[in-house]
Design a protein around this nucleic acid. Sequence first.
DNA 1: CAATAGTCAGACAGGTTGCCTAATCGATAG
DNA 2: CTATCGATTAGGCAACCTGTCTGACTATTG
Lengths: 397, 397
Amino acid sequence: MGLMSTSVERLSGSAKLLRAMNTSAVLAHLLSRGPLTRSDIRELTGLSKPTTSEVLRTLVSADLAIVTGHTSGGPGPNAEIYATNPDGAYAAALSVRETGRQPEVALAVTDLSGATRARHVRVVGLDVAEPADALVKALHSVCLDAGLAPDRIRHTHLGVPGSYDPTTDAIHHVDVPGLGRAGLVSRLRRRLGATVEVDNDVNLAAIAERRHGVARGADAFALLWIDYGLGLAIDLGGTLLRGSRGGAGEIGYMPLGLPGARTLLRDAPDLHSVLAGPAVVALAAQHGVRATDPAAAVKAGGAAFLAALAQRVAIAAATVVAVLDPSLIVLAGTVGRAGGDRLRDATTVALRASGPLEATIATTGVTDDPVLLGAIDAGLERVREDLIRSVQHNHRQ
Amino acid sequence: MGLMSTSVERLSGSAKLLRAMNTSAVLAHLLSRGPLTRSDIRELTGLSKPTTSEVLRTLVSADLAIVTGHTSGGPGPNAEIYATNPDGAYAAALSVRETGRQPEVALAVTDLSGATRARHVRVVGLDVAEPADALVKALHSVCLDAGLAPDRIRHTHLGVPGSYDPTTDAIHHVDVPGLGRAGLVSRLRRRLGATVEVDNDVNLAAIAERRHGVARGADAFALLWIDYGLGLAIDLGGTLLRGSRGGAGEIGYMPLGLPGARTLLRDAPDLHSVLAGPAVVALAAQHGVRATDPAAAVKAGGAAFLAALAQRVAIAAATVVAVLDPSLIVLAGTVGRAGGDRLRDATTVALRASGPLEATIATTGVTDDPVLLGAIDAGLERVREDLIRSVQHNHRQ
DNA sequence: CAATAGTCAGACAGGTTGCCTAATCGATAG
DNA sequence: CTATCGATTAGGCAACCTGTCTGACTATTG
């Protein structure tokens, strides 16, 4: 643990650093624990009365904290209740997805308190000269409708069905026309005057699963996303594993069996060919279920079909468990969700039958748009961290 | 990134904390960058002359730092050169391994500077009433021979061919008789009066690979250990992935192909059965190579055998890449080492042929005992971190 | 003599303790 | 029912404390 890492602080400095640290600590507590009185803060930080007062004065005058109310009931004067100023900063979340025709963009704007202040789904044509401008326009119009100042957006989190390579500034492996344009993200950054981060949609779904779904409190879990495509998100105690080229979780390419082996399917060299949407539909057809949509196929399918599907899911699960040993594997995506408890139970059985590997299998607990929710959470977290850091690092006068 | 984590510091305090932080920062720099003059420290920390002097005085009087020499050559007085006191603390490393008959224990003691002060391999019978006492006795006798005070050992790192479960205080999946005894580690801790950490041998080999082998400077890499058994260590930027039950990297259990599929081998349900030592020997026999030792078989085997073996290695590699996307995969263990450049090249070819997954394959660069070296590194790192932390945290007078 | 190592004294910044005043609630007395 | 008192708590103020910094000073070396 911590080999070569700078986990142990090497901070050094003088009294100014102290003030910065204390201010930042108070802000962090306000952000994570909600409204607090002076005495709450005193208990949490161990600071003295005059210091807490001074720090709060600083935060209020920096427009980062406000007095939201007063205590009442007890003896003595009513203590002031401090909270972060909700309008101190906003985070924007965008989820772009293919719908077959024009791409759909889900947008949301959250304030510092975590309240979603605006949310919309729009069809945005991105196959234009400047797709970034189209996204900015959509975001600004959503802000306008909700009466929010767009320049208060400190960070924008973008979810895409692909992976972003910062070195080439391009989104790869994406089917949405226009979204793969090089320079889109840096233009977005410039036009919005804010930080922009791009994340894979499956990764964002995992973030939502940890925050709102069945992975709440899990130490580590993997989210298996089955849809038209196939994806895997790996969450290690709240940190997502991305891999050296952002390719972690590309389990569609996972080879199945030794080359030359004759498998049940004529040609099954990788997991994609047996578990992604088309393969699910094909498997359903073998079991007499006629459907073009994989989720519909799963809903309509009988026990035999589900058992066959579960065996394939179990292969993926077993591999992930053998490599990573997560305590939990969440089945998500339209297929995972449609499978529900039936697919979960069948997969549990199939996994247990395949060997000594153990893990809890669960169906996603996120009913709302998981990608957008994840982008909101990630964006909000980023804004909060940036604020804390900005307070912490401005101690060189 | 950093979701839910306390990556952002929430430290708060008064001037005492400042002193503790500065002392700890100076110690950290001395530990990681070796001997330094006052001006070096001033540049690294940004502290003023009087403060650096004061901090160094504190460290020297705490026996943690010493003056090792003086500069010369330049104009002005000769600056004192400070270094951590090598004898300030020791770390012990133990690697227990099965040899067929009596278990062999490799022992080493390192001082704070990283110099190995004692090293030995002993045969230690662990199938006794108190196996912990036998280990302690061996360690003490090694210290005695080298003239080292055993009570200066601040931490002992134990490498075992298995996994340690702290909840039951027992080492699991271990073949060495006596080593699986419950309570062994806590007794070791008590008898040595020091912290004891247990690590899987393959994980330790990965640590050695990062420090002394081909993984130096890699952002993330996986180490595939092929021996009598099969193992995988996953290093993410210097942090090892252990999994929720310490079972990460148990790829021997990885299923191969869909159940019911007829594979090349009659019965090949998992990776262990095609890639662990016995399978390597069997594959060699198929290619006319007669050997009982898998490493010898690999050394004696021809190109066809190596290509067949490499195809199996590539399956493991491809799976790891699909899940984790490391930039580097290191082949280690006796088979990996014996395979050398030939196996590496054949595996590279086989991986490239199997799909679009990419990763650099390399042969281990550690020639010395990798498990013991890893235990030394991990133990030394732990001692250093503990020292830095102990200085950092004693600011409540 | 020039340049550098290290110390010393005073200033400074920020935090803490202890004391003070003001606010609020409950209990008690009228 | 009302007025008052006491207990309790919020928050401010002043003096003190700790640790760092600046600038001057001494000592040492080429």
